[in-house]
Amino acid sequence: MTTLPDTPYVQVENLVARYGTRTILDGVSMTARRGEITVILGGSGCGKSTLLRHIVGLLTPAAGRVLINGQDIHQASEDEQEVILRNLGMSFQAGALFNSMTLEENVALPIIEHAKADAATATTLARMKLSLVGLGHAGHLLPAEISGGMKKRAAVARALALDPQLLLFDELSAGLDPVTARELDELILRLKMQLGVVILIVTHELSSIQMIADQAVMLHAGKVIASGPLADVRALEHPQVHAFFDRQPRPVTMQQALLQTLLVNGES
């Protein structure tokens, strides 16, 4: 199924996610469009990665739905789901490269399986993808032999292997030195310019957000508290939004107030 150019490629509608009795996402709705970078923001543990996992169908929602290119990924048949997944590429927080394979083999695997290319063609294509992320020289190395930044770039190359319409990155620049993080941000901007794909990024790195985000969706305690163009979200009068962008620590006053309840007559 194809959609009109104006229709969002990714539509999340009233998504509810639970782990046991804990509600992680509570009625989350958001969209992501072609040619735009949508950043999912929020503090640690607010449900960002869980949202991403629902979008790619790794988790099944307790309620609500996720439409990818107009199709509900959780209701799709096996063949339909395969088509959806072949059109998306995801890079995980720690890369999630197959440790028993070289970088080249990692990138070539989806090409061999889905593009039905012979091994030589797949290897050539894998080398091209690795060059795109600046790892053309490292294809023969195993994941254990490279740095964290290189792993993340290799994971991006693997996500790009089948020229997907939708790219998802989970904490791409987290834990990296500022130079490598900046290089990855520039890589994402280049991908947006060159490929015009939908890019969804989960992050809480402020510098990265400011550099790459077109749209932002901000989560707090499992709910969307702000969404829209980054500038609009930043300008929003909301204490959590301010706290996030202005890097304010959790209000000590709340803690203080709690302690007061333990003191006789609220004395201090």
């Binding site: 997944l85 999630a96 197959f98 695997l109 989806p110 399986e113």
Partner: peptide, 17 residues
């Protein structure tokens, strides 16, 4: 188990493998 912990199995699923 190691593949599960390091999200390799999830990565496979997102690649429709």
């Amino acid at each position: 188990g190691t593949m599960v912990v390091s999200e390799e199995v999830d990565a496979m699923r997102t690649m429709a493998l």
